[in-house]
Design a protein around this nucleic acid. Structure first.
Length: 195
DNA sequence: CTCTCGATGCGCT
DNA sequence: GCGCATCGAGAGA
């Protein structure tokens, strides 16, 4: 596979080497980039959620299993999982090696390759191309193949430094759809960008 | 092996 | 607002 970019400005591993909530906030306004079939698709991350380890009942890493093992590994890797029999969700592994944690990419505002996204999600209005975790993976063509991809080195999927988002435009809420104990439900670990 | 149900999205009401 | 699609991970037996 020839590398058609000289040196894409991927965020370095140190960027991911933080606790999940801090990383979730920091990922807002960064650029998610996907190259498939030589086509570049990108957008600014607009919504994230942090997931922890054994102290977070809502997290896959609440228990260490073969699937969640990657969340215990070094930061900067993609954790892609299959859900509800038909959707994929993309996470970026956070925190140091041995410290479990990840950030779910819940929403992206499309920038480049919008026509490709439309073709991947036929009949969907532009505003809803990637405004949900499953939609992000559909619009960006992200599947199981990209699980464990190194976001700091992959030529297929990475995150670049974007304009970021000022604190005045960040909204923080509890996470969506978590069913754990009160601690898991009440944690303010969802970050979204207000327009 | 079997059973449950989910870090969801969509279409219909 | 509500029900359904659809299947793999994880747990219990």
């Amino acid at each position: 596979m020839p590398q058609d970019n000289c040196d894409p400005p991927r965020l370095p591993r140190a960027f991911y080497d933080r606790d999940p909530a801090t990383l979730a906030r920091a990922l807002l306004g960064q650029r998610l980039v996907r190259i498939a079939d030589g086509q570049r698709v990108s957008g600014l991350i607009s919504e994230t959620e942090a997931y922890g380890g054994p102290d977070d009942q809502a997290s896959h890493a609440f228990r260490r299993t073969p699937r969640s093992a990657i969340m215990y590994g070094p930061p900067g890797y993609a954790y892609v999982y299959f859900i509800y029999g038909m959707y994929f969700c993309l996470n970026a592994v956070a925190a140091a090696d041995g410290q479990p944690g990840a950030v779910l990419i819940r929403g992206v505002v499309p920038q480049e390759g919008i026509t490709i996204m439309r073709s991947r999600r036929p009949g969907v209005a532009d505003a809803h191309l990637a405004d949900g975790p499953g939609k992000v993976c559909q619009a960006f063509g992200i599947t199981r193949n990209l699980n464990a991809a190194d976001l700091t080195a992959s030529s297929e999927l990475w995150i670049e430094a974007g304009p970021g988002v000022p604190a005045s435009r960040v909204v923080i809420t509890p996470r969506i759809g978590v069913r754990g104990d009160a601690a898991a439900r009440n944690r303010l670990w969802r970050f979204l960008t207000r327009p």
